[in-house]
Design a protein around this nucleic acid. Structure first.
Lengths: 263, 263
DNA sequence: CGTTTAATTGACATTATTCAACCCGGGTGG
DNA sequence: CCACCCGGGTTGAATAATGTCAATTAAACG
């Protein structure tokens, strides 16, 4: 298999590394395990629907580059984006367990991804406890994002929600290794943002204008400029603890390998 | 250990059975594995804070009876309840991985639970692939609940949210084996409901009054009477697919044991 | 019984939505 | 090259949904 060679192996694992490395030390064995599961490196164009709402899952993907959105389309035409899948995240992990999806998975940008066939991935999970533990960790990580989103939607104002997701995105993008934090590309329209925040486009627009007016940030042409990081985080009530986890240190007898610090 | 005897073993596993059984056939081996992890059967009084917000996790619990809430307390005094833990669910599964919790875990009612010490549970996970797979399934299940909650908070009206959670609770309680669906006890105040739905108490009250007026349901003194199930589900736009899953059937070579139908 | 907590209700304030008009830049076909 | 078109983006005004305040009633509890 093409991906079994040095270059391919490195590429597959590197994407996942930053995510898992907060939890366990990745050695050569797990690297080759993951590379062995992967059977293809694929590209999709922006706009591609990977899994339609109500449709059947394909295989699990490990996103290498680009952005994928998971969204629900409502009967009245409204849409709610449930999460944003960034490089290093898994796309459609549920494909392992469920037949169909209640959400649409679509490519916001052109993407590249490693394909992890369900049966191989499943088999590997059954055999390799370390891999299981790693996915357990990844799941918990994503669960935290959803929980925090629930808090935002339930108890934060539009302005707070806007600042909060932006903080979250910046924080997550840092992990994937972006260069400039003050100025970064976010390939999303105001309408898509409003569908993440659960507000109308018009209100989204007005909120962004106000934030710009107040010298906190500017978001134009997919370019986010953070003008005042401190105020941004304060207004959002943002705490990155749920992204850059504090791992528990007191009971680690069972851990798969030697632990390294998440920070 | 007390719980290793016949009665204890049956009790521990029975709670979990209904949940996992949609995924895999539970045999004696996994039963005794789970029972072996459990080292205590505990009771807590209503109001007990199992894990304070920002505080350290204890052990994982498997809830046998009673209701537990996971909630975030905001700086301004507001609260958002992120999920409701029902019998058969795990409490604080994150204790396996994380040191502290961003949420408060508190007992809404008196509860009984089986204690699963983190190190034992972790060790068992590393050794027992079937157990890992089962928890993988449970995690996915809960992730679905959170995703659906996000849709509600983002794109459903107060009335829709109210009807929707009630549908969800009924559907989940069915799994735990309630007798009467038309009339069931929900140990929550209107204020707590409003903190689930992300609306104010006053508006919650008015919404409930309207639903009663319209002959859809009545909720008084913790007693929910479903007057018109059909309309309730229609108004909510409720589809129980995310609770009573459809498992994928096409690729099951890797499954831990023989599969049985989830329905 | 008093006391306390939860529920209820009306009046009013705030937030966000909807509608509609307009702008603006990037294609695109003539 | 220009005129047009189209999909965001921007803005103000009217409307609807929900929140806040405050007062009252009802239920729970020792």
């Amino acid at each position: 298999m093409d991906l079994q060679d040095k270059a391919g192996l490195a590429a597959v694992t590197e994407v996942l590394l930053r995510k898992i490395s907060g939890f366990l030390e990745v050695d050569d064995e797990i690297k080759s395990t993951i590379a062995g599961i992967c059977d293809d490196h694929q590209e999709f164009r922006a706009g591609t629907v990977l899994v339609p709402q109500g449709g059947h899952y394909g295989d699990v993907l490990l996103l290498e580059s680009g952005w994928v959105l998971r969204a629900r389309h409502m009967e009245n035409g409204a849409r709610q984006i449930v999460n944003v899948v960034l490089p290093g995240d898994f796309v459609a992990m549920n494909a392992l367990l469920f037949a169909t999806s209640d959400f649409e998975l679509s490519c916001k940008t052109d993407i590249t991804a490693f394909r992890l066939p369900s049966n191989r991935l499943g088999t590997a999970l059954m055999r390799n406890a370390i891999l299981s533990a790693a996915l357990f960790w990844v799941n918990a990580h994503e669960e935290s994002l959803l929980a925090e989103r629930i808090v935002s939607l339930g108890r934060r104002s539009a302005r707070e929600r806007a600042t909060h997701v932006l903080c979250e995105l910046i924080s997550r993008l840092e992990i994937t290794g972006i260069s400039n934090i003050e100025q970064l590309v976010i390939p999303m329209s105001q309408e898509e943002f409003s569908d993440i925040l659960g507000i109308s486009v018009v209100h989204m627009n007005k909120t962004l204008r106000a934030l710009e007016q107040d010298g906190i940030l500017s978001f134009r042409n997919s370019l986010l400029r953070v003008l005042d990081k401190k105020r941004l985080e304060t207004e959002a009530g943002f705490n990155d603890g749920y992204i850059h986890f504090t791992r528990r240190e007191d009971q680690n007898a069972w851990r798969p390998t030697r632990l390294i610090d998440a920070r």
